[in-house]
């Protein structure tokens, strides 16, 4: 499913190394990425999502992020840890934008269980951090993704929303969608069948033996 080779990420301005992953090949499943603040989790996720440049090769289902970018970005979705959207847009503007570009299906169950409908016609400038998080999660599931990257998906969510999200992740996972998740909060072992947990330490990625 995901293949990473000779991956290196440095801070653009100072050329300070952030993370190095010589090789990582993952089959379909749910993967939990742990690490201290600043260990490079978000940089890795942003690189896989195509938000920032990096050295090396990243491919999903054989599609290379650089050579087949359009097809690749249809397969890979990303929900940020701290989403930021233009203040003048409403939730529905963004949902329509994503539906238009990503195509595919709409995660109606997640949309309903997170209660996004209640505030989707308001401008994002009026959203609380929890509302922004819920919107970003719905956007992260739009289309026909094969890999969804969820950066700290549980922060700012209420208890009911956390449970609803974990159920949706399980449901999507059973349909063959893979997840890479970073979370400082524990993931429910009853609801999530985590294949492997990785630890980002000393600027590299290590499988964590539990």
């Amino acid at each position: 499913m995901l293949s990473i080779t000779h991956f290196k990420k440095k801070y653009a301005s100072k050329q300070i190394p952030v993370l190095s992953v010589p090789e990582l090949i993952l089959d379909a499943g749910i993967y939990w990425f742990k690490g201290e603040n600043g260990s490079g989790k978000t940089s890795l996720f942003k690189s896989i999502a195509g938000l920032i440049p990096f050295e090396g090769t990243i491919a999903v289902n054989g599609l290379n992020i650089i050579q087949q970018r359009m097809a690749y970005t249809k397969l890979v979705n990303y929900a940020e840890a701290e989403p930021l959207y233009p203040a003048f847009l409403t939730g529905i503007d963004l949902i329509e934008f994503y539906k238009q570009t990503k195509g595919g299906s709409f995660p109606a169950a997640l949309f309903e269980s997170l209660g996004v409908e209640k505030f989707m016609h308001q401008k994002t400038a009026t959203y609380s951090s929890g509302m922004l998080k819920k919107l970003s999660l719905v956007l992260g599931f739009i289309g026909n993704p094969q890999l969804i990257l969820l950066d700290e998906p549980l922060i700012a969510l209420d208890v009911a929303a956390v449970e609803a999200l974990q159920l949706i992740i399980l449901q999507f996972s059973r349909q063959g969608v893979s997840f890479l998740i970073t979370s400082h909060q524990p993931l429910s072992s009853e609801l999530m069948e985590v294949a492997t947990t990785f630890l980002l330490k000393e600027k590299t990625l290590l499988p964590q033996i539990l």
């Binding site: 938000l51 970005t73 890979v76 940020e80 959207y85 570009t101 956007l139």
Partner: peptide, 8 residues
């Protein structure tokens, strides 16, 4: 709009 780099 940085998120749009993840869109096709």
């Amino acid at each position: 709009l940085q998120f749009s780099r993840n869109l096709p």
